[in-house]
């Protein structure tokens, strides 16, 4: 076991990947609480798929991948925040429309690019092991920005998730903060794409808080638990992928899913076996 851990932490592949992967784990665990509380998991699906359009534009115009994708994702997220209220379109439908439309645009643009320029498998399912120094720098700045936003607005976002009307009546600028929340989620999604890929990103933004939801009793305890689950899932997933030569993104998500099942089962046991149930 110790030999394995030694080999894992000293492997040249992991050396560059561990820091950004753990940084993403910290950011996603924090944001996932708000994704669940505001019921925005479908938004993360939409924005992550829409980032393919950004990547397509970046490849076509030879722009840096991650920043271009970040701008596109944030723009799409903000559009989704504005569109339903302005046009009377249901938010689910709006997400569906933008999700499909930008995915189509991305596919068209990428199919025109030379195949060696685009690691399509990496884009769709993530590959943190191929992270470049430049990517790490972008992820670091992005993470700092998201964490700063959380420091400033976490409590207001929490209050808005609980009761939007009362939050507004107590003097919170709810419309503005909702826009910022959507934008920050868009940015987080793009950082996750490198780790888990377009298809699996939602897992990173839903699973940590979902594991913690059964046990958290307040915002801070939920945050601490979500953080713990996320770190365990990311480290465990990377070790799993290292040991059996599996794709890193999928291994992390699979590990988080196992943690979720474990957490759910433990909570079920607690309520049905250790406490007297009054349910039928």
């Amino acid at each position: 076991m110790i030999d394995f851990l030694n080999a894992f932490f000293n492997s040249p592949v992991m050396a560059g990947a561990l820091f950004p992967a753990l940084l993403i784990a910290v950011v996603t665990s924090s944001m996932s609480m708000f994704v669940l509380a505001h019921r925005l998991s479908f938004l993360t699906v939409g924005v992550s798929h829409a980032s393919l359009a950004g990547l397509g534009i970046a490849v076509t115009l030879s722009l840096p991948l991650l920043p271009t994708a970040a701008v596109t994702a944030v723009a799409v997220a903000l559009l989704l925040a504005i569109m339903p209220s302005r046009q009377g379109i249901n938010e689910d439908a709006g997400t569906g429309v933008l999700f499909a439309g930008s995915m189509a645009l991305g596919v068209m643009l990428i199919s025109n690019a030379n195949s060696y320029e685009v690691d399509l498998f990496g884009l769709l399912f993530g590959n943190i092991l191929t992270v470049s120094e430049q990517d790490t720098t972008w992820i670091t700045w992005g993470s700092l920005f998201v964490l700063l936003a959380l420091l400033i607005w976490a409590k207001s976002w929490w209050s808005m998730a609980f009761d939007m009307v009362t939050a507004k009546a107590s003097g919170i600028a709810t419309s503005k903060l909702r826009l910022i929340l959507y934008g920050v989620i868009g940015l987080t999604v793009v950082m996750c794409v490198k780790l888990a890929g377009i298809v699996l990103t939602t897992g990173l933004l839903v699973l940590p808080a979902a594991c913690a939801w059964f046990w958290g009793r307040s915002m801070l305890s939920l945050w601490a638990l979500s953080f713990t689950f996320s770190i365990i899932g990311t480290l465990g997933g990377l070790m799993w992928s290292y040991q059996y030569d599996l794709p890193s993104g999928a291994s992390i998500i699979a590990m988080l899913c196992l943690l979720f099942i474990g957490s759910w089962f433990a909570s079920w046991l607690k309520h049905h076996v250790f406490e007297v149930s009054h349910d039928f």
Binding site: A37, R39, L150, L151, I152, W153, A154, K155, S156, W158, S159, A161, F162, D163, T166, A167, S170, G171, I172, W213, G216, R217, S218, M219, S221, L222
Partner: peptide, 27 residues
Amino acid sequence: KLPDIPLRVRDVVAMGLSSYNTSLLQG
């Protein structure tokens, strides 16, 4: 129905304080 968010009773009341809507650092 109010959303399914883990909150203790005193946390709900705390949301009514003017000081609640400040940053975590100021908190």
